[in-house]
Write a protein that binds this DNA or RNA. Sequence first.
DNA 1: GCCAACGTTGGC
DNA 2: GCCAACGTTGGC
Length: 137
Amino acid sequence: MAYWLFKSEPETWSWDMQVKKGKRGQEWDGVRNYTARNHMREMKTGDQGFFYHSGGERAVVGIVEVVKESHPDSTDDTGKFDCVDIAAVKPLPKPVTLADVKAEPSLAEMILVRQSRLSVQPVTAAEWKLVCKMGGL
DNA sequence: GCCAACGTTGGC
DNA sequence: GCCAACGTTGGC
């Protein structure tokens, strides 16, 4: 099983909105970046991901799960972009902020830190475990 | 609100 | 196919 990180501006699509979609989930649509798209193409049903709020909040706030593998993005009329469906699993008892991640030396290689603009990114098993622990899971 | 990073577009 | 111009994202 692989781990990922999904980033969103809460004003556009927030964790609360994701939770309201329930177990059937929602298309992670609107991504118009090839690297992010390629990551989504690699995802398998059951893969886990972090849900990160960018903008003012800058924190990992919850855990999501891939419920539908890569398919054409219904909001893209060029046919170039695909997306997966994800569903909220559970919130982090204690959100892990970007500052927390940056303060942790063993998370210095996280793409979140090194390439802040990439909206869909892979997370290593070690990073996953540590961020979960920091978040109170 | 500013600016750096970086991805995309379009002219050549 | 290269590269300059431009637009967008996201941290500060």
